[in-house]
Simulated scan of single mutants.
Amino acid sequence: MKLVVVSAGLSVPSSTRLLADRLAAAVDRQTPVDIRVVELRDLAVEIAHNFTNGFPGRALADALEAVTEADGLIVVTPVFSASYSGLFKSFFDVLDKDALAGKPVLIAATGGSARHSLVLDHALRPLFSYLRAVVVPTGVYAASEDWGAEGLPERIDRGAGELVRLMGAGTAPETAVVPESDGSLPKPAGPDRETRADGGSARGGAVTRSHGFQVIPFEDQLAALHG
């Protein structure tokens, strides 16, 4: 699988790039991936020219193609004025509007204060939702005091694990998994269930797929609530 990491850090060394590398390493620990890092600071001039003449330079075109063909993305930006950086936004402005449709994306950001952590949900998540990407539930924010502190490694591993699962799935599940009425996890299919031709089984109105999860039709759930 191809993993592309987009880093909008400006300084060298950069805490944004450091977070990007840690996220990529966490993904690679959980499943082998081909990692490509796109440093936006190296593409700043070509991005600006693309806005004025409508054509990407060679390096920018290569980066845009890598993002389009990736199986998953990690995107990391520094926080400027309580939002993503202009360079970060400009790169995704010149990307084809359909390039990220259905693509798993792990969002992350760095900043000088923990007060900016809401940038993940107030700026980054809406941007990639608009681009029709599949944004993983866990976003990773790293303030200056987070480096070397408890909590950041766990968030990195959790976000990486969610991205791995989405990259491996390829597509969203066709049916939702519904817990049992007592709140417990669904039980595997037992011998008392009738096996269906499609590999699942049926008992009453409930259907259990071959992977063992029980799927209850909505009308049955509604009837149980009213009952």
Rank of each mutant, 00 (worst) to 15 (best):
D28K: 14
G159C: 10
D96N: 06
I156A: 12
G112P: 03
V67Q: 12
V5F: 07
V76D: 02
T171P: 00
A44E: 12
G183I: 08
F51L: 13
G161T: 06
V94C: 07
D34I: 04
G168S: 14
A109M: 09
E39W: 01
K2N: 15
L19H: 10
T175G: 01
P104E: 06
F80T: 05
S210G: 08
F80N: 07
V33M: 07
D121M: 04
L118Y: 05
D71I: 01
A133M: 11
S181Y: 14
G170P: 01
A160Q: 09
G200D: 08
A24L: 11
A101Y: 02
G199I: 05
A123L: 14
E145Y: 08
V37H: 07
V164G: 09
Q214H: 05
G170M: 08
R155W: 08
D71A: 09
P126M: 11
H211R: 11
L19A: 13
K103N: 00
E46F: 01
V215R: 04
L127H: 03
I74F: 07
D157C: 03
A142R: 11
D42F: 04
G200K: 05
A59C: 01
D157Q: 14
A197V: 10
P186T: 14
D62P: 00
T16N: 11
K187R: 13
A224Q: 14
L19Q: 11
P104D: 02
G205Q: 03
Q214A: 12
P179E: 13
L225V: 15
V119C: 12
S129K: 07
L185A: 15
R58M: 08
S144N: 15
P186H: 09
H211C: 10
G159Q: 11
A61D: 05
L10N: 07
T110M: 08
P217N: 04
V5G: 12
A172D: 04
V164Y: 10
R58K: 12
V76L: 05
Q30P: 06
A48R: 11
R155Y: 09
P78T: 12
N53M: 06
A224V: 03
L166V: 03
K2T: 14
L225Q: 11
S90Y: 01
G212T: 02
V4N: 10
Y130V: 13
T171K: 09
L163N: 04
D34H: 06
F88V: 10
L120A: 11
E219D: 05
A123W: 00
L120W: 01
G159L: 13
D71G: 15
S14H: 08
L127I: 15
A133N: 09
V178I: 15
A224P: 01
E65W: 00
Q221V: 12
S181T: 10
A202M: 06
G212E: 05
I74Q: 04
G161N: 08
A82W: 10
L10I: 14
G86F: 12
V135A: 09
G205N: 04
A114K: 13
L73V: 05
M1F: 08
A101W: 02
A172N: 03
G183E: 13
L87Y: 11
I107M: 12
Y141Q: 12
L185N: 05
L124S: 07
L100R: 02
P56K: 07
A8K: 04
R196L: 15
